[in-house]
Design a protein around this nucleic acid. Structure first.
Lengths: 230, 230
DNA sequence: AGCACTTGACTTGTATGGTAGTAGGTTAGT
DNA sequence: ACTAACCTACTACCATACAAGTCAAGTGCT
């Protein structure tokens, strides 16, 4: 039964609601949908060839994540990036990942360390202008640490929270100084390998605070994307 | 089945969906809706005198929190309590609250310390059999710490995550040794007052690990409420 | 008796209709 | 010209109808 004539954006095998959610989430994080932009249940529904209901469910999820703001009877808008929100998320992330990396350092499993070193080599191979590729590897690095600590759930919490940070990272096109970030990764792995959990933890905390350095400059240069009520 | 033709359980002034969510969430946490129990969009809608749609949205939110499990075309069930899930949540909570209490200890604001001591006195006044009252004060205590650290967002993350822990706490009727918990609170406040952030942090970590001690016994005595596939 | 199949009463997922409310441009009144 | 009332075109929210899948009881054949 191939009744699909319309250019359905969604695929089979999974409910439509979650698919719409992921599509919109990705577009917001990658700044394809700009902060402040107005969305609409019916417009989004039409453009995705689905009904309004799944779109509505997606909007609700996005609003819980703080990516959109739903104003009843008025409209739904992509939230502007808020410096305060980014810092709030960063704090939570640091707290969780600090404990994770300490656990990994305690475990000092050889295969984990080998895997992390493999990833470091991979990261160094990325050309300095290919930002997206490095961001993927960075994501993998942190995810690997969580998995090594046996904290899959903690990672899922981080994932649901870090969207606000990711939006900023997609903006910092120019001076990402990938080299420095890799050095920080190396220090983390080093601390793990030597079993110095305090060293590893502190390296992770510093690593996650790196975003704070670039944030003010980005907020100034792309002021129209940021919330100015703070 | 006595269906109360209740005159609108929901109130005015707020959307129906979130209200339904809170009502069901409360009932699940307080074990009024038992783990394993089957829910139904239409039944819940009828008993609350609303339509299926807001109920559906509530179900989705609850499933994201891990309180219910939605099986398409089959049914929606209150999730059984999982020892692994409780420990996962506890880990995240410890990581965040450890950093929070350290911040508070660094700030050593006199009015905060005074407020915490006031709450300690309040906690001691609670009769040892009034579990619910103590749980409310305990909740307030931790919330106050987060607020004092200026981490409202971090607290909201904890709130959305700790439902799994709260379900267990409502079960541990008997040996809650409220006294010991208060002693732990006192040690936390002491660490904050003296500015020894390492002491305060460690006290918080021990406090949040307390649940692990009672968990195995509860899982054994109320095995029918727990997931046995682990 | 025992197995294959049908049927119907459920379930959640999706689509659509109807309502109250807001925003903004336009028009009538001064 | 200026103000105020209205009017239209939107919005999200809720209710309801329909579609598709699941499961178990029941039926008829072997």
């Amino acid at each position: 039964m191939h009744t699909v004539k319309s250019p359905k954006v969604v695929a089979m095998g999974e409910s439509v609601g979650p698919q719409v959610y992921r599509i919109l989430r990705e577009r917001i994080i990658q700044a394809e949908l700009l902060p402040g932009e107005r969305l609409s249940e019916s417009d989004a529904a039409k453009s995705l060839s689905v009904s309004r209901q799944p779109v509505r469910e997606a909007f609700i999820k996005l609003s819980e994540e703080g990516l959109v703001q739903v104003l009843p009877q008025r409209g739904t808008f992509v939230t502007k990036i808020s410096v305060a929100s980014v810092m709030d998320v960063r704090f939570v992330r640091e707290a969780i990942e600090a404990d994770i990396v300490r656990l990994v350092a305690e475990g000092h499993a050889p295969e984990t360390i080998a895997e992390l070193r493999r990833q470091l080599a991979e990261q160094k191979k990325v050309p300095h202008d290919n930002r997206a590729a490095f961001l993927r590897l960075d994501e993998l690095f942190h995810h690997t640490l969580a998995a090594a600590a046996g904290k899959a759930y903690a990672w899922s919490v981080i994932e649901s929270v870090k969207a606000q940070m990711d939006r900023v990272r997609f903006l910092s096109v120019d001076d990402m100084h990938i080299g420095r970030l890799i050095e920080q990764h190396e220090r983390i792995v080093e601390g793990i390998a030597t079993g110095e959990k305090a060293v590893a933890e502190e390296a992770m905390r510093l690593h996650l605070r790196e975003i704070l350095k670039s944030l003010p400059a980005i907020a100034r240069s792309r002021a129209e994307l940021f919330d100015d009520t703070e």
